[in-house]
Amino acid sequence: MSNIYRSNILKSQKRAFTEGTVLFDEDLWLFFEIDADEETELEFYINHEIRLFKEDTWVTGVLLENGVIATPYERIRMEDGDKIQIKKNILFSLENLIEDISDDAFHQFISTLNNLNYSLYDCIFCHNHLVFLSSQKMKQGVNFITFDNGDEVCAVQHHFTYYKKKRDRFEFTLSTGKRIVIENFIP
């Protein structure tokens, strides 16, 4: 599995963007998220991937200063009241974790997570114990990950043993009581 394959999987994840509208008020650009009660200064999202809804289509680019979006073809200045989507970040600890697991474990983990109607962007907590074991020959422990898709919560325990063989076991427990266990073993 290539990095391009992993990248495409990450790009196809649901809820990767936060949607809202922009307001220009007293020389300040503000972002009003649809599901939030307060505004955020748009300056906080400079250099983030952003989508602007123009002429019944989403235009993708990178947010620059002063309400300007750079696309591959042009620079567009946002207007007061424009509808936008801002790309969310994956938690740093989760990003490190998915880089460290094998391609098979990555595929099984993401597939199961998506089949349960969760996205990597739904992660609200990740304790990556692998980070603390980088200098050890034998790596063994548990990572704890929590996802919230807005309807339910899913807690994942990732049990791992990496020595001469690699073993990954993911235990998914939903707030509804549903449980799924998957295991990946590489000799």
Rank of each mutant, 00 (worst) to 15 (best):
E65Y: 14
R77E: 08
T112K: 04
A155W: 03
E43H: 09
S93C: 07
N66I: 09
N184H: 11
D80Q: 00
D82T: 06
S12H: 08
L130N: 06
D168N: 15
E26P: 00
K14G: 04
E171W: 09
N115L: 13
R75Q: 15
V59Q: 07
D27T: 08
V59Y: 05
I110S: 06
A70Y: 04
I9R: 01
T57F: 07
L42W: 05
T146K: 07
D103L: 03
F172K: 03
V59C: 04
V142C: 05
L28P: 00
I186N: 13
I90E: 08
C123T: 14
E39P: 02
V22D: 04
N117L: 13
L116D: 01
C123R: 02
Q140C: 12
Y45R: 05
E19Q: 12
H129C: 01
L64K: 14
L52N: 12
F170L: 10
P187M: 03
E171I: 14
D25P: 00
G20Y: 01
T21I: 12
L130I: 08
N117D: 14
L63T: 02
I182V: 15
S135H: 03
N114W: 06
N66K: 13
D56Y: 00
R75S: 12
V181H: 01
L94D: 07
E55M: 12
E152S: 04
Y121H: 06
F24Q: 08
Y163P: 00
S119R: 06
V142A: 10
H107K: 10
F125D: 14
L94C: 05
I4S: 11
H159M: 14
A155K: 03
